[in-house]
Design a binder for these strands. Structure first.
Length: 105
DNA sequence: TGTGTGACGATCG
DNA sequence: GCGATCGCCACAC
């Protein structure tokens, strides 16, 4: 079975509200610490956008992808702000405060 | 059926 | 410290 993709979806669903994760983290949880690219593509093909909050997944730097699908990085940023995610003046997510690594909860 | 590409990240040189 | 290459996944051509 596609354990990797299934695990990726499961890990993303585990991300608590108000927190964000990164592709590397999801890949690690999926068992493929170097499959960040695969995670990105799997999320891009997000079969259940309502069930999988892929907008909570950002770069390890906390920056959002430039070619987003929701309508633009502004939309993703707004969604995260609505959830209480803190953003830095650089326009990146504050991974120091809202970074989720899947170890807690 | 096989190759190339795309929301990335880490490691090698 | 910076640059280049590899690894991983699924899908389109």
């Amino acid at each position: 079975m596609h354990d990797f993709s299934q695990n990726v979806y499961r890990a993303v669903q585990k991300i608590p509200r108000g927190k964000v994760s990164n592709y590397g983290c999801i890949a690690f949880l999926a068992g493929k610490p170097r499959a960040a690219r695969g995670v990105g593509f799997v999320l891009h093909r997000n079969p259940d956008p309502e069930r999988i909050p892929c907008h909570r997944v950002v770069f390890k730097d906390g920056s959002l992808c430039k070619g987003y699908v929701f309508g633009g990085p502004d939309v993703q940023r707004q969604k995260l702000l609505e959830e209480g995610v803190a953003f830095l003046p650089d326009g990146r997510v504050d991974m120091e405060t809202c970074g989720w690594y899947g170890k807690e909860e």
